[in-house]
Design a protein around this nucleic acid. Structure first.
Lengths: 140, 140
DNA sequence: GAGTATAGTGTTATAATATAACAAATTTTT
DNA sequence: AAAAATTTGTTATATTATAACACTATACTC
């Protein structure tokens, strides 16, 4: 148990818990309706928790979906350095953990030599399972 | 003059025109209020034009800002393969045109060997001009 | 060139996503 | 324990985006 998870507040824990239970990214209002039984009543309570969880790197925002997903990289302390693959068909999102790609991104400089604090990269394609289904469907 | 720009409809032209006039990305409702004098009255008219312009690669969506920016890469026929740098301070967005980075992204495969159709990469940092301002401010 | 398919338009209403503002309670620091 | 910082709870509202439907224009094909 690390420092960061110890210091989570009640609402932050509730929201993180719910996000971690889900394989797919979840939407803010879906979180809200699912945690209302736990005493979270209104959007700002959810959004505040989300902001904090993003800040400490426990979750990431999937920009192209307005959704939120738990960080899969253990001991992640690098919010805002994220790489995802997203299936165009089923919308499942996987966090990519590829050292070579990370290095390319970390080392990237623009023409001015600007060093970047962070990045977000989203790859779009068709996941294996969806591709197989498509092949099945064209078989006859 | 290429095929694609010839075939733009009236509303598509109006919206593209406005986006191209702006250095910074623009928001959908800002587009709307600025083109109302040209006869575009309601959000769906703007969003439809945006969808089409994105589809043909004339503009890109800046996911982290919910904003839209003209493609700066001449004869761009690759929608959904975008790299931007975004200043955290002034929110200015530049489209990055870096062949080596493009190659890395194009060649990337995930663990399953999935080939991706597209990607969106956003780098975050402080642009040169904002960095200089910050240094000025700490000088005394 | 008549018929039909495809894409675009205009409109109203509403859904989905996100934040402002403020008072009260809690936790952390000094 | 007082002061500071963070979190909470709440109401209201701002911002972003789409559904649905009737209609018009353009392109395609026989």
């Amino acid at each position: 148990m690390d420092k960061k998870s110890k210091s989570l507040s009640k609402n932050q824990k509730i929201v993180l818990d719910f996000i971690q239970k889900n394989k797919k990214p979840v939407k803010a209002y879906s979180i809200l309706s699912n945690v209302q039984k736990k005493g979270i009543n209104a959007p700002p309570q959810v959004y505040r928790a989300l902001d904090k969880l993003i800040e400490i790197g426990k979750i990431h925002r999937v920009e192209s979906q307005n959704s939120f997903v738990a960080c899969k990289i253990s001991n992640c302390d690098t919010p805002h350095k994220t790489v995802f693959s997203i299936c165009n068909s089923c919308e499942i999102v996987s966090e990519i953990n590829d050292p070579k790609l990370f290095k390319n991104l970390k080392d990237f400089r623009d023409k001015d030599g600007t060093v970047f604090d962070g990045y977000n990269l989203e790859f779009f394609g068709t996941c294996k399972s969806c591709k197989n289904k498509q092949i099945e469907n064209t078989k006859h």
